[in-house]
Amino acid sequence: MIDHERDLAHVREATEKLLTAAASLDNAAAAEPSRLPGWTRGHVLAHVARNADALVNVLRGLPMYPDATTRDADIERDSGRPVDVHLADLRESADRFLAVGAEPADWSRTVELRNGVTDSASRIPFRRWVEVDLHHVDLGVGYELEDLPEEFTTREIAFLAERFSGLENVPATVVRSTDGGTWTTGGASGGVTVTGPAPDLLGWLAGRRDGSALKAEGGPLPELPAL
């Protein structure tokens, strides 16, 4: 059962960790490349802030972003700011999200995200937790997939496995963690089993690692579509 209040607490904790990490950067370090192709660390920080406001929109029944062009332009606009401005924006946007999350609401209602995707409002706090913690890793400042909480890793593997289920361009795949846990994904044909440590499985599913640390049986390691 999804516990949105527990997830909001995780969001708060993850945000504090991200703010501490970002505060260790100087302006030159913020302008250096992140682990995401084409994005500096400043782009990552700007995206995390703008995502908080976008999820506030979602919870209020508004469009997540006006459109894809505006979303990308806002991130580009904010990417080159001094670190102190990034920190203030991260804090203020996070507070806005948590404030809306604390309001009385029907958490069982359906909300709309980008590209017509719908979900339960109760899952939005976890989606925010993913944005904060996974992009913390993307900064490349010493916080790794292995440092993510076990609950986070297990739940995000399950979410991504569900996301790729039914895709005919992904073979039917069993995803098995050596740390415990088994999931299925992909289409109806094929029959590949991918095994490895949970952080490496998450990295592969989330497009953060190439899967070289994983073992594939019954076929090659499936190529996954971009998120």
Rank of each mutant, 00 (worst) to 15 (best):
A23S: 15
D72F: 00
W204S: 03
V132Q: 04
S177R: 06
S189F: 08
L62Q: 14
L98I: 10
T40N: 06
L160E: 05
V48L: 12
A54P: 01
V170N: 03
K215G: 03
E92R: 12
V58C: 04
A31I: 10
L201I: 09
G116Q: 00
P225F: 04
R114S: 14
D179R: 14
A102D: 15
P149K: 09
E103N: 11
G116A: 01
D200W: 01
I124M: 12
R6F: 11
T20Y: 13
E112L: 02
E32P: 08
S108E: 15
R176W: 00
T153F: 07
L224E: 00
R155H: 14
S24A: 13
A14D: 13
W107G: 11
T40P: 09
S189V: 01
L134S: 10
A172M: 07
E144V: 14
V194A: 11
T185S: 09
D3W: 08
A14P: 01
A73E: 15
G203M: 01
P222A: 10
P220D: 14
D26T: 07
H43I: 03
H10K: 13
P149F: 06
V174H: 08
S79Q: 11
D7K: 07
D67I: 05
R41I: 10
V44C: 05
P171E: 06
A9C: 08
G101E: 09
